[in-house]
């Protein structure tokens, strides 16, 4: 067989493997055996472990956004819109995407390097020898962990961002606090909340599947580990941003927003 043909074949079978992993990993939710201890451990690592970094980043994003808007809007005399614009952009867009990116940077690289070194150290083979399905034992808990923790982190991050925005609007830009909160309440309508909360589930699922896949397909020693860790983070980032656009488009269509 020609080299090119083999490469194309490999590429297609890699893609198949990825779909298989994503699907079977999710199916593990309802199939036995279910490794609940591993799920708890993953939730602790990915959720509790990312808590403070998400708080910090969200706070500063909220403040920076509010600051930028104050400068621009007060020049035009539209300062009272700060709350509305901060609210919409945080809840619908910046909150979910930023939280997911930070999460992917931290958890994606962690998962890929952990699973990668398990592969290189024959630990994954050992699991199979003991009759344990690595998808069920390693992938499903990580998918569940992300499906639960990323949405939770996103809600916390959104709240902190909005509080940061409030601080700047009221104490730096000297706005009325009640106007800010009234606009935020107005922004918290069904459409915005739904579009803001569907995203983290999808992003979490993508990040978990991509990083598990990259980790489990590691080969070639330390260099290989570097490659799969980097790929896990880069691919997660790209997929999160692409998926964000697609989701936004689809949700706009569903909710009938006119452009």
């Amino acid at each position: 067989m020609k080299k090119e043909t083999i490469h194309i074949k490999e590429w297609i079978s890699d893609l198949q493997d990825f779909y298989f992993l994503s699907f079977q990993g999710l199916l593990g939710l309802v199939k036995r055996p279910f490794y609940s201890k591993d799920v708890i451990e993953q939730m602790d690592y990915s959720g509790a472990g990312s808590f403070f970094i998400i708080l910090l980043i969200s706070l500063f994003i909220g403040m920076a956004l509010s600051l930028q808007l104050s400068a621009e809007l007060s020049a035009m005399g539209f300062k009272m819109y700060i709350g509305k614009i901060v609210g919409v952009s945080i809840i619908r867009e910046i909150g979910p995407v930023m939280t997911a990116l930070v999460y992917a940077g931290r958890v994606g690289s962690g998962v890929a390097s952990e699973l990668g070194s398990m592969v290189l150290g024959h630990q994954v083979d050992t699991l199979r020898v003991f009759g344990v399905d690595p998808l069920r034992k390693l992938v499903t808990p990580r998918i569940i962990g992300s499906l639960i923790m990323l949405p939770a982190l996103t809600i916390i991050g959104d709240t902190v961002s909005i509080l940061g925005g409030y601080y700047i609007a009221v104490f730096v830009s000297h706005q009325s606090g009640s106007v800010y909160w009234t606009s935020i309440r107005g922004v918290l309508n069904f459409e915005n909340v739904v579009s803001g909360s569907i995203k983290p589930f999808i992003f979490g699922y993508l990040t978990a599947c991509i990083s598990c896949y990259m980790g489990l397909s590691t080969k070639g020693g330390a260099i290989g580990l570097r490659r799969s860790t980097t790929r896990a983070v880069v691919a997660s980032f790209v997929m999160i941003i692409v998926a964000d656009f697609i989701l936004t488009r689809v949700l706009f269509y569903i909710f009938g927003f006119s452009l």
């Binding site: 150290g121 024959h122 630990q123 050992t126 199979r128 020898v129 009759g131």
Partner: peptide, 23 residues
């Protein structure tokens, strides 16, 4: 397939390079 192999694998005791303990 993987399920059918479970039975086959119980016939062996396999020790990988470096031990492969779960760290």
């Amino acid at each position: 397939n993987e399920d059918e192999l479970r039975e086959v694998r119980t016939k062996f005791s396999i020790v990988f390079q470096e031990g492969a303990l779960f760290d």
